[in-house]
Design a protein around this nucleic acid. Structure first.
Lengths: 143, 143
DNA sequence: CTACGTGCAAAAGCTTTGCATGCGT
DNA sequence: ACGCATGCAAAGCTTTTGCACGTAG
């Protein structure tokens, strides 16, 4: 994380306490909705406003400091880009989220690139499905 | 579509004009948001209500007659399951949507199955990225 | 000092829900 | 005739926007 504060300012943005708090919250929470980020930030700065969270997440994403994906049909979740780039598996049974290194999708990416002249953004990808255990449980229910 | 009307009733649902119109609209429109489905249905049945569209899409999806995916960060889009099962590529530049046969993801699916004990629902998948042309345009802008 | 960022409140977009009426079976 | 499905209206949840004030640079 080669000082993101400098990056912020070099891009013409100001460094505010809110922006620091919100980035810290996203990093700490792992995968969090704007609402969850707000709640976390408000634990130490109760007057921070929801609209600031939305506006700030937008800025941080533009700078590439955070990314969002859709882990449910509801609100999006944000995560820090500090770790390895990854995509997500979400089990429809137990809602468990697994992070997978983008490298595992290399073949898929190449196929889309060569066959459809399309460069996928794997870091934004979320794959819904069923984990083995939930699949087993589901079968049992049918009997 | 080996009479879906029978399937509907066998599942304990009633066959109503609204349900027929809504399924027809989804089929005809290709990929449509609930709002677009409503507008289309209202062209011939102006009193049909938005809540009926939502409730009906839910029923039709439960029966496997339609599916939804998220082609934008906004409203979901529904499509008929009559054609081949497919997933989607969405270009962030021109918003073009390309449908790809699930077969093309076979290797990816197998990898997730064997390495993560996870059965992906490829039919729900949407891959965001950039088509070749938009990528080129983007490069030009930087100069 | 300048103008960007914030808090607040209101609005907007999408979806859900409660209820009385209507209609498929 | 029974009870599910619908229309309507209101509420709910998430996100966006306009505006005046505060504050980083």
């Amino acid at each position: 994380m080669p000082d993101w504060r400098a990056r912020l300012r070099d891009s013409g943005y100001r460094l505010t306490p809110q922006r620091e708090l919100i980035l810290a919250a996203v990093t700490e929470l792992g995968h969090a909705t704007p609402d969850e980020v707000l709640a976390h930030v408000q634990r130490t700065a109760s007057t921070v406003n929801a609209s600031t969270v939305y506006r700030t997440l937008e800025v941080l994403e533009e700078l590439g400091l955070v990314r969002h994906t859709h882990l449910s049909d509801r609100a999006p979740t944000y995560h820090s880009t500090a770790g390895h780039e990854h995509f997500h598996l979400v089990c429809r049974g137990c809602r468990t989220v697994v992070s997978v290194d983008v490298e595992e999708a290399a073949g898929f990416v190449e196929s889309l690139t060569t066959r459809h002249a399309f460069t996928p953004d794997v870091g934004h990808l979320t794959v819904f499905g069923m984990c083995q255990e939930c699949e087993r449980k589901q079968c049992e229910e049918k009997s």
